[in-house]
Computed example of a mutant assay.
Amino acid sequence: MGLLQEKEGWEQVVPTLQPINSPAILAHWRPLVFLWDKLSLEQRGAINQLELEPGLQKPAPIPAIHVQGSNVTEKVPPEVSGFDSHFHPDRLNELSSGVQDVSKSILPGREPDHYVPITGGVLNYCDPLNFSHPEFEEQVLGRIIDSNSKLAIGIHPKQAAEYMQGQWECFLKLLSNPRVSAISEVGFDFTVKKHLWRHQKELMDRILSLGTLGRILVMHLRGADDGKYSKVVNRLALRRLKRECLPHQRVHLHCFTSDVSMVHAWNEAFPHCYFGITGKVRSFNEDQLAALREIPLNRLLLETDSPHLKLHPGCTYNTPYYLGDVGYYVARARGVPLAEIIGATYTNAQRLYC
């Protein structure tokens, strides 16, 4: 440090941390901050518990801050926890040892930049082959004893041309179980070949003909060639729901990526409509960001859609563990603290899935 002071022409002092009295200190702390960022939460906790040498005073904690465009973590108060409103445990099971308990989420490669403890979530099973398994009721329904864990069952639009009648009957049986809160995923995915679209329309009509049985409708609306906003499939779904459902129907728009006009259309048609935002928020354009800011705070939900939509290049897949990182990008887009988004979306999910 002395050589650096001499080279840069800084005042010749003995560098100290209390007070920080020289720019040379940065030469010491820059690699330490880099190394600290590489540690796990457990390793950081162990270091924090180390005893100081006699005579040294522990420095006062530095408040967490956020610098635009940096990786500095914005922390949330310890009493604030998150609710992942949409993830797929069965698909996660194919990649890991399982994540039935969302409070013990798995870590596939790196720590989140913005850690938030997860104390609730909606477990989505929309693959008929999985929920029609003979042991599904015992292994899944039998474990949904935590009031913060909600269950959604359905047939994904991409499965519309493939599901069997026996799987449909199993789906109906599961809907009769009071532990099932939602029908998921209902809607259209026009990324498949065009000749398969009619099967998706038939499946949606078949589901809506049930009367929804008081369940939440979790909508999957993904367009083909109508841009990023999926306005065609949004309008198709909205038209069908307005025809078949009452205005008080609870609706969860999963992975919402449309524009302001669709925010208004869904809100006007269904006052109990909620908008789920995933990691796709990182690539939103100005129209989509405007829509995100237009969503009322009390109608906003956070989703990881894990194991899909991984947020970080170093990860092999996504998990609910990264919900705080999704929340961070939503908070930044809306210009509010992360804690506000995490708290509001937790309350919203509890209200919707009560």
Rank of each mutant, 00 (worst) to 15 (best):
R299F: 07
R299P: 06
R299V: 06
L300K: 02
L300M: 10
L300P: 05
L300F: 07
L300Y: 04
L300I: 08
L300G: 02
L301V: 00
L301A: 04
L301K: 00
L301M: 08
L302P: 00
L302H: 06
L302I: 10
E303C: 12
E303W: 06
E303H: 12
D305N: 13
S306A: 15
S306T: 09
S306C: 14
S306G: 14
S306L: 06
P307N: 02
H308I: 04
H308G: 02
H308P: 00
H308N: 08
L309A: 00
L309C: 09
L309V: 03
L309E: 05
K310V: 03
K310P: 05
H312Y: 14
P313R: 04
P313H: 05
G314E: 15
C315V: 12
T316L: 14
T316H: 13
T316Q: 13
T316Y: 12
Y317F: 14
Y317I: 02
Y317P: 02
N318T: 08
N318K: 06
T319R: 02
T319I: 05
T319K: 03
T319L: 02
P320N: 12
P320C: 12
Y321E: 09
Y321C: 11
Y322E: 14
Y322F: 15
Y322N: 10
Y322P: 08
L323R: 09
L323T: 09
L323A: 09
L323V: 15
D325H: 15
V326M: 07
V326Q: 01
G327P: 00
G327M: 05
G327V: 07
Y329L: 03
Y329F: 13
Y329K: 00
V330M: 04
V330I: 08
V330S: 02
V330H: 02
V330A: 01
A331V: 02
R332D: 14
R332G: 10
A333Y: 01
A333P: 04
A333T: 00
